[in-house]
Computed example of a mutant assay.
Amino acid sequence: MPSGFIDVHAHLLPDFYVRQATAAGHTHPDGMGSWPSWSVEAHLDLMDRNGITTAMLSISSPGVHFGDDKAARLLARRVNEYTAELTREHPGRFGNFVSLPLPDVDGALEEIRFAFDTLRADGVTLLTHTHGVYLGEERLEPVFAELDRRRAVVFLHPTSPLGWEQSALGRPRPMVEYVFDTARAVTDLVMAGVLTRHPNLRVIVPHCGGALPVLADRVDEFMRLFLPAQEPPAPGGVQQLRGLYYDTAGTAFPRQVPALLNLVEPDRVLFGSDYCWTPPALADAHIAAIDAAESPVGGATWRSLTTANAKRLFPGRSR
Rank of each mutant, 00 (worst) to 15 (best):
S39M: 00
V40R: 01
V40N: 05
V40M: 01
E41I: 12
E41N: 01
A42G: 11
H43A: 01
H43L: 01
L44H: 03
D45M: 00
D45R: 08
L46S: 03
M47K: 05
M47E: 13
M47C: 05
R49F: 00
R49P: 00
N50Y: 07
G51A: 02
I52Y: 08
I52N: 04
I52W: 11
I52M: 09
I52G: 02
T53I: 00
T54I: 02
A55W: 08
S61I: 09
S61N: 13
S61L: 07
S61R: 03
P62S: 11
P62A: 11
P62T: 15
G63M: 08
G63Q: 12
V64F: 06
H65N: 15
H65K: 10
F66A: 09
F66Y: 15
G67C: 10
G67S: 10
G67P: 10
G67N: 12
D68W: 12
D68F: 08
D68Y: 13
D68Q: 12
K70A: 15
A71H: 11
A71V: 07
A72S: 13
R73S: 11
R73F: 08
R73H: 10
R73C: 14
R73T: 14
L74I: 09
L74M: 07
L75G: 05
L75S: 07
L75F: 07
A76M: 10
R77T: 15
R77L: 06
R78W: 04
V79A: 04
N80F: 04
N80Q: 07
N80V: 10
E81G: 07
E81I: 13
Y82C: 03
Y82M: 02
Y82N: 04
T83W: 05
E85K: 03
L86E: 14
L86G: 03
T87P: 03
T87F: 04
R88V: 10
E89A: 06
E89S: 11
E89C: 00
E89T: 14
H90E: 12
P91C: 03
P91G: 05
G92K: 08
G92H: 12
R93Y: 11
R93M: 06
R93K: 12
R93I: 04
F94R: 02
F94D: 07
F94A: 04
G95K: 11
G95N: 14
N96V: 09
F97N: 02
F97C: 01
V98R: 02
